[in-house]
């Protein structure tokens, strides 16, 4: 039986959208898949050593369940993002959902390969020393080298 492969393109850097790539990658690795995640644009934030600044915003996010309905004008106020993030983290913990750092560590432990898009690293002037050391740097062509052979390929 040949090893199945999965590639994910992670483009979002918010707390909610950070979960799907890490959940799917760690699960696929547990099922025996060879997995690669290509981080580009805001997804690069998920490669920082410190993930405590990954946040969720209620603004322009009408599907986010809120404890009380909140007018958009109020969602714009200073501190609302921090509050929403804190509440979301408490909720995640209460439901036994792993933290982003824990899920990312599980991915690394299971040999999920992390590739950062060199172009967007340069574009946003990221300092590579802020990223975890397991990251490799490449471009779109390198992604296709792996993605072209995969059974599952997702854009998040």
């Amino acid at each position: 039986m040949t090893t199945k492969k999965m590639a994910i393109i992670a483009t979002k850097g918010t707390l909610d959208m950070a979960y799907p790539p890490f959940i799917l990658a760690s699960t696929a690795a547990a099922l025996g898949y060879d997995v690669q995640i290509f981080f580009t644009f805001y997804g690069l934030q998920l490669l920082r050593k410190d993930l405590s600044n990954v946040m969720i915003s209620p603004l322009a996010n009408p599907a986010m369940p809120m404890p009380i309905p909140m007018p958009v004008m109020m969602q714009m106020l200073p501190g609302m993002e921090s509050m929403a993030t804190m509440m979301m983290k408490q909720k995640l913990k209460k439901h036994g959902v792993a933290s982003l750092t824990e899920l990312r560590d599980l991915c690394l432990e299971a040999d999920v390969k992390f590739v950062a898009c060199q172009m967007t690293v340069d574009l946003f002037e990221f300092d590579k020393s802020e990223f975890i050391t397991e990251v490799e740097y490449a471009g779109a062509a390198a992604f296709f080298g792996f993605a072209g052979e995969t059974d599952i390929c997702l854009f998040v």
Binding site: T27, A30, G96, V97, E109
Partner: peptide, 14 residues
């Protein structure tokens, strides 16, 4: 016990 997806599977594998 108390763990949510995907931890039960990922940690079973481990």
């Amino acid at each position: 016990s108390g763990m949510s997806c995907p931890l039960p599977i990922v940690k079973t594998k481990k």
